[in-house]
Every structure is written in C-alpha cells, then in structure tokens.
Write a protein that binds this DNA or RNA. Structure first.
Length: 272
DNA sequence: CCCAACTCCTGGGCGC
DNA sequence: TGCGCCCAGGAGTTGG
C-alpha cells in the first residue's frame, strides 16, 4: 500500500525520465477515476513533486497531473505502445522527448483504488484529503509544539489522527504502526503530552526516512517504477507482527481494528 | 466545523 | 479440487 516512502521512491525514479517530455497521446479505462488522463494530452511535463501520498506532475500550461496510487497502483515505462492486453492497465501516456523516441508511461492498478486528476496548479478543491493535508514531515514549520497542537485539535485516537493526514502528511497504516511502536505510544491514546508528541514526531520522521532509504515496503503489490520491490518489509517492528513477540520486551503483540484498519501494538511497551 | 459509517475494488488465503 | 467467504485499506461521499 503506497505511503509516502513508496510514492517518493516512484517520484525519484520518474523524475529524470519524464522531465521535459511532451505528452503526445493518452488513453484510459472508462472509469471516471482514470479518464482525466487524456486531459494532459498536448502538455509537457516540467517537473515532478509529491504532497502527502499524491504524485504531482507539473505541466507547462499551469496545470498539474495528480496521481494517487491507491492500494495497488503501479507506474512503469514501456518502449513502444501501451500493452492494452493487460487487463489491469487503467491509464497510459505516450511521452516524446527531444531524442524523438516515444515511451509509454503506464498506470496499472488491480483494485482501482487509484485515481488521476488534471487540475490548475494548486487547485485541490476536488481532492479534500490533499487540500487539507497537514505539513510535510520535514517541513521546518513542523516543530514538536505545532505537531502537538495539531494533535490537540481532535479527540480521536492517535492512530486515526495519523491516518487522517492532518497533523502530518504521508503516513498510512504500516508506517503509523511502526512510528507508534518506536515512540512507545498506544494507538488508542486520545491525548498525549508535548514530550510524547515530540517523540512521536521523531519516530514518524525516522520510520519514513528508513522507508525511503530502503525503497519502500513491498508486502504484496507495491512495485517501484522499474518493477522492483522495496526492502523495508524486512525491517518492520510492529505491522503484521500480531501474535509474535515484541522485539523490545517479548510480550505477545496485540492486534485490533481501529478506524477500519488492522492495528498492531505491544500492550506492555506502548502505554496510553 | 467535526465525525462515523459506508463505498469502492479484486486477488489471495483459508476452511470445508 | 473447488467453492464460498473474508481480508487487505486510502480517500471520497453522505448524513447527522
């Protein structure tokens, strides 16, 4: 499930290959989640960016192609025309570079949780989660105090708050469980003090940094833009370890559904 | 404004 | 072997 480290890994791989390319053709699956792909025809890609879990391709006409990978979305390059035999191909763009060699950027997505939009740059009015996303994890404005204040704005469980993208952008189910384990905070806690918020902020940053360094977490579907898997799945402390011993204290790890997501934690180390 | 519940999707894993 | 059921979960929508 692509979270910030996975999207950032894909962005870094895409960047040198799409920058300066002109989108000369495009096509999509009929679902309205994907049909905006063709709205980018005729524009050139100026740069790549990322906000929360959204990939942003800046076009040369003051618009952006916004891509969300959903649960199973994969971006990949192909020499020549799109492989329309692939039943999971949801969108494609023909890219032309100065060297006159056409390449296809394909978006495949088995479960169709992904989505595409072409919008005026910065106009995220149709994408509330993106529009309301909190600070990027390494934004210098995100001090421990601000993070704590943003957490204070809601009484929902801390796990739910991390997934909401509002106190900090880019965290999903895997990295949320990892960060809470590292910071020794119970995911059901509804209020934490400034010191613990500071510890959680450090933990979110370090777990996301490690995720990027290792090229993301591949549990099943995630692949980077070169078709490769990540390496972070071998380094998980909490996610998916229900029933196994806590790697810090040996207590059997608990699992419970919070906010419709399986949440795994150690009831000994992670106190409210 | 906030929040809870519901919806979208399909392959893989499991029990029988 | 095969069938049916359930799980994985990010974000948009709806309604209170």
């Amino acid at each position: 499930m692509p979270e910030l480290p996975e999207v950032e890994t894909v962005r870094r791989q895409l960047d040198p290959r799409v920058k300066g390319a002109r989108i000369v053709d495009a096509g999509s699956h009929p679902s309205s989640k994907f049909t905006p792909a063709t709205e980018a025809i005729g524009a050139s890609i100026v740069s790549t960016g990322r906000r929360a879990k959204f990939l942003l391709l800046q076009l040369d006409d003051d618009r952006e192609l916004v891509v969300h990978l959903g649960m199973t979305g994969v971006l990949r390059f192909r020499d020549g025309p799109p492989n329309e035999e692939d039943p999971y191909l949801r969108a494609w763009w023909t890219l032309m570079r100065d060297d006159d060699i056409a390449q296809t950027l394909e978006f495949a997505d088995v479960r169709r949780f992904g989505r595409l939009r072409v919008v005026p740059t910065g106009d995220y009015s149709g994408m509330p989660t993106l529009a309301n996303a909190g600070p990027e994890p390494w934004d210098p404005i995100l001090t421990p105090k601000l993070f704590w204040q943003l957490l204070q704005a809601s009484k929902r469980p801390i796990k739910t708050q991390l997934l909401s993208q509002r106190p900090i952008a880019g965290v999903g189910n895997i990295y949320a469980d990892e960060a809470l384990w590292i910071a020794e905070i119970n995911p059901t806690a509804r209020r934490i003090g400034l010191e613990r918020a500071a510890k959680l902020l450090d933990a979110v940053r370090s777990t996301l940094e490690q995720g990027i360094e290792l090229g993301g977490t591949t549990l099943r579907d995630y692949r980077n833009a070169e078709g490769g898997t990540g390496g972070n799945q071998h380094e998980l402390f909490a996610y998916g370890r229900s029933g196994k011993p806590c790697l810090r204290c040996g207590t059997t790890m608990e699992a419970r559904v919070i906010d419709a997501r399986t949440t795994t934690w150690c009831k000994t180390c992670q106190r409210r």
